[in-house]
């Protein structure tokens, strides 16, 4: 499976931010998105995940293969760490594997209510969701926010060995080097002309 994007244009709040974007990511490879705040990293990832419609262009991706992760990762404070993870595994129709608790260093926390975790710990729990839902294409929006150096290294190792090493794909928007041998894509090159009217709603009235 290859992620292939052609002529993609995306809009945030009705204003086009990226245009004519194209790239290919082969199995086992990652792509790092670069660009200043507001460049459209989050918007692009959400469109790739199918959470928002693109303005134009095509995304070649098998259905139900992508997983999106941002700082809002739907952790329920009153459920324990294991209960949170088991829910996502069951919802995505995957068998439960204990291994993920070790991969994300959560074994000692496994019965704690998620509400009592620190910011870094609950970030690890949020990322561990990616380990249980078994999706091939990970779309990661600043995955290392509030992680310490050791946790960043651990996550990078998981990404390299357990995900990319098994033929997975990752598209990552990050400012922190993860030590992945991944090409970078500077979104500044694809900045859309903000005056261009491509937003369907407004266009109908101009």
């Amino acid at each position: 499976m290859t992620l292939r994007v052609q002529g993609l244009a995306v809009a945030r709040g009705g204003v086009p931010v990226l245009t004519d974007l194209g790239f290919t990511v082969d199995p086992g490879h990652a792509l790092v998105l670069r660009g200043p705040n507001g460049a459209g990293k989050t918007t692009l990832l959400r469109v790739l995940a199918g959470l928002a419609p693109p303005l134009a262009g095509r995304i070649d991706l098998p259905p139900e293969s992508a997983a999106y992760a941002s700082h809002a990762d739907g952790i329920k404070a009153t459920l324990s760490v294991t209960e949170n993870l088991r829910f996502w595994a069951a919802l995505y129709g995957r068998p439960w594997a204990d291994q993920v608790l070790d991969d994300f260093d959560l074994r000692t926390l496994k019965d704690r209510p998620a509400g009592t975790l620190s910011a870094g710990q609950s970030r690890r729990l949020g990322l561990a969701r990616l380990g249980v839902i078994g999706r091939q294409v990970l779309l990661l929006d600043e995955p290392t926010v509030s992680l310490d150096a050791a946790s960043v290294a651990r996550f990078a190792a998981w990404l390299r060995e357990r995900h990319l090493g098994r033929g997975g794909i990752a598209v990552i928007a990050t400012h922190v080097p993860l030590g992945l041998d991944a090409p970078e894509l500077d979104l500044a090159w694809f900045r859309a002309d903000p005056a261009a009217v491509s937003h369907g709603t407004d266009a109908a009235f101009l």
Partner: peptide, 19 residues
Amino acid sequence: EIRVRRLRALERQAQRALA
């Protein structure tokens, strides 16, 4: 209603042209 929407679209267009 149509004029309100048209006005809004024009305003947004002008804003984007300035940006």
